[in-house]
Amino acid sequence: MSALRIATWNINSVRLRLPLLADLDAALRPDVLCLQETKCPDELFPHEGIRALGFEHVMARGMKGYNGVAVLSRIPFTARANDPDWCMKGDCRHVGVTLALPSGPLDLHNFYVPAGGDIPDREANPKFAHKLDLIAEATAWFAQQAPLRRSVLVGDLNIAPLEHDVWSHKQLLDVVSHTPIEVEALQGWMRAGDWHDALRHFVPAEQKLYTWWSYRAKDWEAADRGRRLDHVWVSQDLRGALARHEILKPARGWEKASDHVPVMVEMTL
Rank of each mutant, 00 (worst) to 15 (best):
P126A: 15
F128C: 10
A129H: 14
A129E: 14
A129W: 04
K131S: 13
K131F: 12
D133K: 12
D133Y: 03
L134Q: 15
I135T: 14
I135V: 15
A136M: 06
A136N: 09
E137K: 10
E137C: 10
A138G: 09
T139P: 01
A140L: 08
W141Y: 15
W141R: 12
W141A: 12
F142L: 06
F142A: 00
F142P: 00
A143F: 04
A143V: 05
Q144L: 10
Q144C: 07
Q144V: 05
A146L: 05
A146Q: 08
R149F: 04
R149E: 06
R149H: 12
R150F: 02
R150C: 01
R150D: 09
S151K: 05
S151E: 04
S151Y: 04
V152C: 02
V152H: 01
V154M: 01
G155E: 01
G155S: 04
D156V: 09
L157N: 01
N158Y: 08
I159F: 06
I159A: 03
A160T: 06
P161D: 04
P161G: 05
P161C: 07
L162W: 10
L162T: 06
E163V: 13
H164Q: 14
H164P: 01
D165F: 11
D165T: 12
D165G: 12
V166R: 03
S168E: 09
